[in-house]
């Protein structure tokens, strides 16, 4: 029977959310194509992890070995190369995450299979794979057809296929670990936790997020004054941290913090998916941006299409009037 293989992503003893999304997508594709979904778990002391996966897959392959205590893209690549060759799935699914991106493109290259990355949609048409990807800072979508092959590798973006309940009951199939030591040329040393700053943006009721649209560091006080008036904290998107205008602990997004305030005001943030991932569950979102096509307006409840340098002072005054 044809198979789809999904690589289980976990870190520090916890299965990452992307895994259940990937398994949901994999199962849907398997059901449509009369195939079986195989989960591959590489880890150490995996019993409880394996238990939570059994209901989501038709088969669960588990390689339990010390070498997988921590993540190393190279040990994953070499192990998966062996497993994929043995199982011959027609599709291998990996999360488009810091984990997946470190081994999936090189794995596919090693195996000689067509692949692509950061898919937001996956279809199978006549045994061939057609995906949807985003280009140009998320402002365009594209349909991409993969070259004809017997096997493919795809990385899939987080959040595109909401995780569903399982209902299956796979038995754990223990397999021998294809790799037993880290390679000399790439060794995992340690995880370093994020530095804790003076303000915890995840605890605030009102978060004022600022992005590239603020243009210059000299304009930041405008946002800080506004945040003070409304009683919120200042957060930001990645470009502001990259430019060193605000510290890393103020960054909202997949590589920063996830916030769920009562009110999120996005100022000059176009809405890259990495940022959206960090704020989409806010109770109310108001976005201010001069580009009416900015993706942020697809997530916001209320939009202001105007020059932020005009709107911010005006809105600040209105808020101060109401407070009086």
């Amino acid at each position: 029977m044809a198979t789809i293989l999904a690589v289980i992503e976990h870190r520090q003893g916890v299965i990452r959310d992307i895994t259940f999304e990937l398994l949901t997508l994999g199962r849907k594709l398997a059901e449509k194509n009369n195939a079986q979904l195989i989960g591959v778990l590489l880890g150490h002391d995996t019993q409880s992890l394996a238990e939570s996966l059994r209901t989501h897959v038709h088969r669960l392959l588990v390689a339990d070995h010390e070498v997988f205590s921590d993540f190393n893209g190279e040990t994953y690549q070499q192990s998966l190369a062996t497993i994929v060759k043995k199982e011959s799935p027609f599709l291998t699914l990996v999360g488009n995450t810091a984990f997946g991106i470190d081994f999936a493109p090189s794995l596919a290259t090693q195996l000689g299979f067509p692949f692509t990355t950061d898919c937001i949609g996956v279809e199978m048409v006549d045994g061939r794979i057609r995906v949807t990807r985003q280009l140009y800072d998320g402002k365009m979508d594209a349909h991409v057809q993969l070259a004809e092959s017997t096997s493919y590798v795809l990385t899939v973006r987080s959040g595109i296929c909401p995780a569903e309940q399982g209902g299956l009951s796979a038995e754990v199939e223990k397999i021998e670990s294809p790799v037993v030591s880290q390679p000399d040329h790439k060794r995992f040393i340690e995880y370093i936790e994020a530095v804790v700053g003076d303000v915890d943006i995840t605890k605030a009721d009102v978060v004022v997020g600022v992005g590239r649209g603020i243009k210059e560091q000299a304009n930041l006080p405008l946002v800080e004054d506004f945040a003070k008036a409304i009683g919120g904290v200042v957060a930001c998107s990645r470009p502001i941290v990259d430019a060193n205008w605000l510290p890393k602990d103020r960054q909202v997004g997949s590589s920063g913090k996830t916030v769920k305030p009562k009110l999120y005001i996005a100022i000059g943030i176009s809405g890259a998916f990495q940022h959206i991932a960090g704020m989409k569950n806010s109770d109310t979102i108001i976005a201010i941006n001069k580009d009416s096509n900015a993706p942020i307006f697809n997530e916001a409840d209320y939009g202001i299409v105007d020059d932020l340098f005009k709107v911010l002072p005006a809105l600040k005054n209105k808020i101060l009037e109401i407070k009086k």
């Binding site: 067509p114 692949f115 692509t116 057609r130 985003q134 280009l135 998320g138 402002k139 365009m140 979508d141 594209a142 349909h143 991409v144 057809q145 993969l146 070259a147 979102i285 976005a287 009416s292 993706p295 307006f297 697809n298 997530e299 916001a300 409840d301 209320y302 939009g303 202001i304 299409v305 105007d306 020059d307 005009k310 709107v311 005006a314 809105l315 005054n317 209105k318």
Partner: peptide
């Protein structure tokens, strides 16, 4: 090549914000 781009299209519009209209003062 691994892949062929078939075509571009605009991302589907999601829930879409309610756009506040008027002068800057009215919007505020």
């Amino acid at each position: 090549s691994n892949s062929t781009l078939e075509g571009l299209f605009l991302p589907p519009v999601g829930k879409r914000a309610e756009i506040l209209s008027g002068s800057t003062d009215e919007i505020s």
